[in-house]
Design a binder for these strands. Sequence first.
DNA 1: GGTGAAAGTTTTTCTCT
DNA 2: AGAGAAAAACTTTCACC
Lengths: 172, 172
Amino acid sequence: MIAAKTHPPQGTSVPTQTPLDPIDRTILATLQDEGRITNVELAGRVGLTAPPCLRRVRTLEESGIIRGYHAELDPAALGFGITVFAMVSLKSQAEADLLAFEEHVTALPEVRECHMLNGEIDFVLKIVAHDLQAFQLFLTSKLTPAPNVGSVKTSLTIRTAKQVPGVPVDLG
Amino acid sequence: MIAAKTHPPQGTSVPTQTPLDPIDRTILATLQDEGRITNVELAGRVGLTAPPCLRRVRTLEESGIIRGYHAELDPAALGFGITVFAMVSLKSQAEADLLAFEEHVTALPEVRECHMLNGEIDFVLKIVAHDLQAFQLFLTSKLTPAPNVGSVKTSLTIRTAKQVPGVPVDLG
DNA sequence: GGTGAAAGTTTTTCTCT
DNA sequence: AGAGAAAAACTTTCACC
């Protein structure tokens, strides 16, 4: 017989992630905006010296709050002139069918985002392509034949007024 | 009277941006994936020594192909549990009205993306919020009262199967 | 356009508070 | 937890091919 714990652990079972203090938030906001800033520059801005600043950054990375760093590229300069949103409805919403669709589209490099939504539309996809012809080919040969697809409605992006990575750290 | 040009400039008026060679593409793909990699590591991967690699990166930055670097943060860890897509149609599609709407929503920190689309839906917005209550408040007090709004249909993101920043550099 | 070495910073560790 | 000093690594410039 396994003895029951007489003293439940204090707090939750999840490691007590120290709630982010204002310095951590400033670090996150700064790195989200300028991902390649040097640690000494970052330390100066948040009012620390380099070593403790670096320790905080490493902690934030290891805890998964910072997932990674990415260069933001100009799609047009790489020949990707077309961005399309596709609203997809499936024939079946059984979990296995949802997963099968997700696995299919996740493997397609043209699909940059795939979000499952509530309501009549099951998924919204953000798709990039070199030109309209390449997109049409992608649509008919890759997306529409995906398992369990009911309907696909696509809308071309005419222009992008705002595209900010991440979340507003400043908001409480 | 202004003399007409007798010899039109060779090629286009845009500065002849050297088409990206395979090394540049590898640099871009690498930095898009690992934005904080050191230059020596990057140089090693693309088969160069550090100095020419750094020169290429600087050229790519100055030409605008690399727009910037950003840390990718975990929205949930910052308390942003809610991501919503809003499909907005305006009452008027005159350019001045489109711009007025864009200016309004661009200033809202909860709006992370705003794309103008063709078809019945004029704009798709990606919105983040701390919780449903905060989102409802945002919707009724910030988005719906935006100038010229006809209809707003919102869909909650249930889960995100794929979210890759940028474009597939590897694709021709 | 690339290489190799040298100079200047930055990162990172260590010790102390 | 943060500060200051020291060692290691990286960035950046320069002369050369």
